[in-house]
Nucleic acid binder design. Sequence first.
DNA 1: GAGGTGACTGCGA
DNA 2: CTCGCAGCCACCT
Length: 115
Amino acid sequence: MEPKADKLTFFELVYAIVRLVPKGRVTTYGAIANSLGAKGSSRMVGWAMNASHSVKPLVPAQRVVNRNGMLTGKHHFGGSNLMQKLLESEGVIVINDKVVDFDKIFWDPAKELKP
DNA sequence: GAGGTGACTGCGA
DNA sequence: CTCGCAGCCACCT
């Protein structure tokens, strides 16, 4: 099924933010939700990622991790270490399914996109 | 039409 | 300190 483009849904907004994440940087579900004005709806951000596989262009969901910097969604990338590999390919160090120096490479859309 | 789920987060005990 | 619970909105059965 294909989502209607009649009106922008929460998903579309989430995809836009994730695609804006610079290479070598990561963000969190809460940060995205916060930038969208739905800081309480962090779950929806994750749900949007679930559909990211059906969205084009592909959304770099690997850059989106939980508040702890842990790759909670790596299982949805094929059940393998693909997500970690992608992050490492971009220069992000990942150990034990967790992003190293997460605080340093953390990219806050609400802050970066803020005028 | 109604109920349940979910790649999360924040707060309480 | 750690563990548990409730809240948020959209999609699926």
